[in-house]
Amino acid sequence: MTSRWQVARQFGAAALVICLVCMASWKEFSAPIAPDTVSPTIEDYAELKSSLPSHGVACYFSDKDVESQAALWYLAEYTLAPLVLRVGSDCGWAIGRFENPRTVDTLDSIGFRIERAYGPQLLLLRRKQP
């Protein structure tokens, strides 16, 4: 009886392992493939890299609340490191990320000029000489 029970338990354990292998393999092989959403943003910022200082501090500002779109700021920092990107507009160089095209008109009032535009939303800005 003990021996039969022992055999039954071993068969049970083996069946469990077979189930585990089948479930895990099915799960892994059937996983849907999602698109890479991060790399395109990084590629946008990578174009800025050659125009900015390689290190030090530059500014980052947006017409939206930066904290609510933190990923865009973080990705800019990731791409441009070791340059440190500070939220604000008191640096010699700045990256502007604007959803509203009219925001560009206000840059003059805060002392910046557009150095180069990288598409409609991403601008490299430089402080105007006094």
Binding site: A24, E28, F29, I33, A34, D36, V38
Partner: peptide, 19 residues
């Protein structure tokens, strides 16, 4: 079999999020 499935999934995750 399980390692082959794991390797496949590993490759997929890297493809989806290379960064």
């Amino acid at each position: 079999v399980t390692l082959a499935a794991s390797l496949y999934r590993f490759r997929i995750v890297i493809f989806e999020a290379p960064q």
